[in-house]
Simulated scan of single mutants.
Amino acid sequence: MALLHRAELHPTKLELLATWLPTRDWYEGEAGTEVVRVAAYRFDDPAGEVGIETLLVRVADGPVYQVPLTYRGAPLPGADDRLVGTMEHSVLGRRWIYDAPGDPAYAAGLAGAVLAGAGQAAEYFEVDGRREARPPSMDIASDAPEGGAVPAVGKVHRVVDGDPTVIVTDGAELAVIRKPGTVPASGDATLTGTWDGISAPLAYAWVR
């Protein structure tokens, strides 16, 4: 479950991405162009410390990009090269925003979604002391057999940037497709998803 806050963010996530995306080799747009949110999904952090959200965004008339992010209340040691930026959250204070493939919390959440069909976290706003559900903006699903074992992901040893972006961990190798619909899946199990505006599921990630 993801408990969301109606908060002001400075800068916003999309403003951070407008600066960060042009630094990626897999990005095809121009710098300084507005980034628009298409859809998003979240994973649960069992410890309740890390926000784990994957944004699908578009820049002008270019492709849809998949950008997994993690939100932390303190810097992630050894992950300076994955830092997208920092923001001020009007409820939670300063947040450190990371390109999620370098964060072990994301790797564990992705492995659970792909191999165990854990799905996305339900999202809630707290309003006047009660929780209001936020409808999902997209659906995700896994083709892994039911009851599949999820390895202990453990440490992220390295991240190979590109499309796909490959995450090598203690227990598995995971791949994140940056431009869904342009790269075929080639793992043992695949995460797919749909949102309004597409006619068939697209592959987003896989696990070997």
Rank of each mutant, 00 (worst) to 15 (best):
D163L: 02
G85D: 05
D139G: 12
G181F: 06
A108R: 08
L76V: 06
A121I: 03
I167N: 07
A149Q: 09
I97W: 00
T70I: 00
I167T: 11
A79L: 00
L92F: 13
H157A: 01
L83H: 05
A108Y: 09
E132I: 15
R131P: 00
P101I: 14
A149F: 02
L76Q: 07
Y106T: 00
A152M: 15
A133Q: 06
V84F: 01
R95H: 08
A79I: 04
A116P: 00
H157I: 02
D170T: 12
V156E: 00
V156F: 02
D170G: 11
S90D: 01
D161K: 09
D139N: 15
I140P: 11
I167F: 01
A133W: 14
V176Y: 11
G154Y: 06
D128Y: 14
A121F: 05
P145L: 10
R131M: 14
D139P: 12
A141K: 12
D103N: 02
V168K: 12
P151N: 00
Y124P: 07
I140Q: 02
E173K: 14
A118D: 14
P101C: 14
H157E: 06
R94M: 12
V67N: 08
G181R: 09
A111D: 03
T182V: 12
D80A: 10
R131K: 12
V160K: 15
P75W: 11
Y106W: 06
V91E: 14
R82F: 15
G102E: 04
L110H: 07
L92D: 05
E173M: 10
T169F: 06
A105Y: 08
R158D: 10
L69W: 02
G171Q: 03
G78Q: 00
I97Y: 03
G109F: 04
A116H: 06
E173S: 13
P104T: 00
G112I: 02
P151G: 00
E132R: 11
G181A: 12
A122K: 09
R130E: 14
I167M: 09
A113T: 04
P180E: 11
P135T: 10
L110R: 06
E126Q: 13
I97R: 02
D128M: 13
A111S: 00
A172W: 05
Y98N: 05
V91C: 07
L69M: 07
R130H: 11
I167P: 09
A172F: 04
H89R: 06
R131C: 13
M138L: 00
A175P: 03
R131T: 15
G93V: 01
T165V: 06
V160Y: 12
A141M: 08
T169Q: 04
R178A: 06
R134Y: 15
D143E: 15
G119S: 04
E126D: 08
A108L: 10
R72T: 03
D99A: 13
S137G: 06
M87R: 14
L83A: 10
Q66M: 13
L115V: 03
G93Q: 05
F125S: 13
